[in-house]
Every structure is written in C-alpha cells, then in structure tokens.
Computed example of a mutant assay.
Amino acid sequence: MYSDQSLPAEIFGIGEIDDTVFVTDESGNWVFSFQGYFDEMGEVGDRLGMDTYCLVVDPGQRTCYGGVVECLAVNSELRLVLTEEAADALKVPPNLSFTLRLPVEELAILKAALSKILTSGRSDAIPEHLEFDICES
C-alpha cells in the first residue's frame, strides 16, 4: 500500500527524454514518469497490454500501462485520477494532486508532453477527461 508521506505535495522539476516526460519533487529523489507508446514492442506488447502509455513511480520502478481516468493541468496544479488497478500497481492513492512550482516555459512543456503521451496507444486507455489550461499564476 502507499503512504501519504511518501508523496510530494509539490513538483519542482520536469525532464523530457524522447517520448517520456517526468516530474520530480524538490530533492529529485521522487519521480513520476509518463512514457508514450509508439509500437516498439509490436504484437507481443499488444498481447501483454503494453500497447498504451506507461506510468512509472520511482523509487521502486513501480509500473503500469494505461490507468489514467482523468488528467487536469490547470494553472499551477496537476491532478490525476487513476484506476484502482493503476493506483495499486504504482502504490499511490487513486486521486493525486500536486502544486506545480515550475517556470511558465516548463509548464508549457509539461502540458504538451502529457497531451501527446496520454493519447498514445490504444483508444480504450485514453483518459476520459483531459484538461490542459496551464497559464502563468
């Protein structure tokens, strides 16, 4: 199970590598990665349910494929609603909320990356609700 003390309330950094964007806490020791799906595994990945975006929480490299029901990045807040299965796999609560302590340029990068990543892969894994209205606070 998860511990609320293990989750940061604020995000202080982001990074982007290829088809992945990640957010970090102030220390950089806690990382939540969003990885896009772009058919690298072919039929094997499809059969294993890996034919969609991937979420990874570190430390622990806890991973799941799909599982985001809602993603809202509005002003300086990132809110995620996960399926119970995704929350269990990642060992986080199903409702996550983070204050984004990021410069405007990084907010724009995060918005664009999440929009692309969370709509990659099979259509039934695309979140039911996506809202990206990040603006300067």
Rank of each mutant, 00 (worst) to 15 (best):
128 E>P: 01
80 L>E: 01
77 E>C: 08
42 G>P: 12
42 G>R: 13
55 L>D: 00
26 E>S: 14
49 G>T: 05
13 G>Q: 12
132 F>M: 03
121 G>M: 02
128 E>T: 08
31 V>S: 10
114 L>V: 00
27 S>W: 00
133 D>H: 03
79 R>Y: 04
107 L>F: 03
4 D>G: 01
121 G>E: 00
90 L>F: 03
61 Q>P: 03
20 T>F: 04
57 V>G: 02
21 V>F: 05
99 T>Y: 08
24 T>G: 01
112 A>D: 11
41 M>F: 11
55 L>K: 02
26 E>G: 12
84 E>C: 07
71 C>K: 01
74 V>C: 11
52 T>A: 11
124 D>L: 06
61 Q>I: 07
90 L>Y: 04
104 V>E: 09
1 M>I: 04
96 L>Q: 12
56 V>H: 02
5 Q>G: 04
123 S>H: 10
76 S>L: 08
7 L>P: 06
5 Q>C: 04
51 D>H: 13
133 D>Y: 02
54 C>Y: 01
1 M>H: 05
61 Q>H: 12
9 A>K: 13
29 N>W: 01
14 I>W: 03
93 P>E: 07
66 G>H: 04
53 Y>C: 09
97 S>L: 09
11 I>W: 04
73 A>Y: 02
45 G>L: 07
105 E>A: 13
108 A>C: 08
56 V>E: 06
101 R>V: 05
64 C>F: 11
119 T>Y: 00
11 I>S: 08
39 D>N: 14
33 S>Y: 09
11 I>G: 07
56 V>I: 15
98 F>Q: 13
7 L>G: 04
48 L>Q: 13
30 W>S: 05
114 L>A: 01
108 A>M: 03
92 V>D: 01
44 V>S: 10
120 S>M: 06
119 T>M: 09
56 V>S: 05
72 L>S: 13
66 G>K: 01
95 N>C: 06
7 L>R: 06
49 G>Q: 02
52 T>H: 08
77 E>G: 01
21 V>R: 04
110 L>F: 05
88 D>S: 15
43 E>I: 02
92 V>Q: 06
45 G>S: 10
29 N>V: 06
119 T>C: 10
46 D>V: 14
9 A>I: 04
48 L>M: 14
11 I>P: 06
4 D>I: 04
1 M>A: 14
48 L>I: 02
137 S>D: 15
19 D>W: 02
134 I>F: 07
3 S>E: 08
26 E>F: 07
121 G>F: 00
57 V>K: 12
50 M>F: 08
14 I>E: 01
121 G>R: 00
35 Q>P: 00
108 A>Q: 13
87 A>N: 08
54 C>L: 13
79 R>M: 06
60 G>W: 04
132 F>H: 04
39 D>F: 01
25 D>Q: 05
94 P>R: 12
43 E>N: 12
66 G>N: 12
76 S>T: 12
90 L>I: 07
14 I>Q: 03
59 P>Q: 05
7 L>N: 06
121 G>P: 05
32 F>I: 10
111 K>M: 03
96 L>N: 11
103 P>R: 08
11 I>T: 10
66 G>P: 10
103 P>N: 14
99 T>G: 07
136 E>W: 02
2 Y>W: 12
136 E>N: 09
125 A>H: 05
23 V>M: 15
86 A>C: 10
15 G>E: 12
93 P>H: 11
49 G>M: 03
132 F>L: 05
4 D>N: 07
